[in-house]
């Protein structure tokens, strides 16, 4: 049976891991390749690197981080941030990544998802969606709504798009995304739990895996993201970076709740 994945996320800025709250107030959390290797050893099922500045001149820095990580951490690697073309995706895969995640670039040019899926397969194409809750009765896609809606935000949360997050998720999958990384901007870094309504609204409408992101406080939240949010994988950053909870703690809680997880041996090797 397929295991539910636990994924540490490394937000990378100028070659260092950083973490903020609601996408702001960044603090330095260490060297990306070293942290990735530690997480792989501790049982991470996958590692996500997000280049949060994604300045063009620093693309080489990210490729070097991927190369260093791929030579020491033998788990799937996903890279997001700043990839804007098929050729740039090829460079990232050649450096040792398995998947590339598209966020702002996919909103700006949705056919990029199709072009990349045709070239590398949809299993390598992740669409990252940053979403924030709208007040009830908000006007979305030109119409007022009575039910809870979420708006897609881009550029690291700085730019609203007027796109409905659930509709965009469905469209991204149609275009070729093989997986969705759904981040609640309201919960990001707040340790107040995942937005399970947002997750379930998307996960019940798409046939591809959904990775829950934004708000993890402890192991119980990972269980809730899967049970109530219908997520296939759960991503977190600060609780792992600051050693508040280990990946093993999280997996133990998931296993105790009856969820299939890949347990690692306690050899410390």
């Amino acid at each position: 049976m397929l295991a539910r994945r636990v994924i540490p996320c490394l937000d990378v800025d100028k070659g260092r891991v950083v973490k903020g709250t609601k996408f702001l107030n960044l603090t330095d959390e260490g060297d990306p390749a070293e942290l990735a290797e530690r997480y792989a050893r501790e049982g991470a099922d996958e590692i996500v690197f997000l280049d949060i500045t994604a300045a063009h001149e620093r693309r080489g820095t990210m490729l070097e981080i991927v190369r260093r990580t791929a030579s020491r951490a033998f788990v799937p690697l996903t890279v997001g941030g700043g990839v804007r073309s098929v050729d740039e995706m090829r460079d990232v895969l050649r450096a040792g990544a398995d998947k590339v995640s598209f966020n702002t670039a996919a909103v700006a040019e949705p056919t990029l998802l199709t072009a990349c899926a045709e070239r590398f397969g949809s299993q390598a194409v992740v669409c990252a969606i940053d979403a924030r809750r709208l007040p009830l009765e908000a006007v979305v896609d030109g119409a007022a709504t009575a039910e809870q809606r979420w708006e897609v935000v881009t550029h690291g949360g700085r730019r609203p798009t007027d796109l409905d997050a659930v509709s965009w998720a469905m469209k991204a999958v149609e275009l070729g995304a093989g997986e969705l990384l759904v981040t609640s901007m309201d919960r990001d870094g707040t340790r107040s739990g995942f937005d399970t309504e947002l997750l379930a609204a998307i996960a019940t409408r798409v046939p591809v895996p959904v990775i829950a992101s934004g708000g993890a406080a402890g192991p119980a939240d990972f269980v809730t993201a899967v049970r109530e949010g219908k997520a296939d994988a759960v991503l977190a950053a600060s609780i792992f970076h600051r050693r508040m909870h280990s990946i093993a703690d999280v997996k133990a809680a998931m296993a105790a709740a009856g969820l299939p997880v890949r347990q690692i041996e306690e050899s410390g090797a």
């Binding site: 049976m1 295991a3 046939p207 895996p209």
Partner: peptide
């Protein structure tokens, strides 16, 4: 249930 089969399986 889903294809491709992607992820950790026993």
């Amino acid at each position: 249930p889903t294809l491709p089969h992607i992820g950790w399986n026993s």
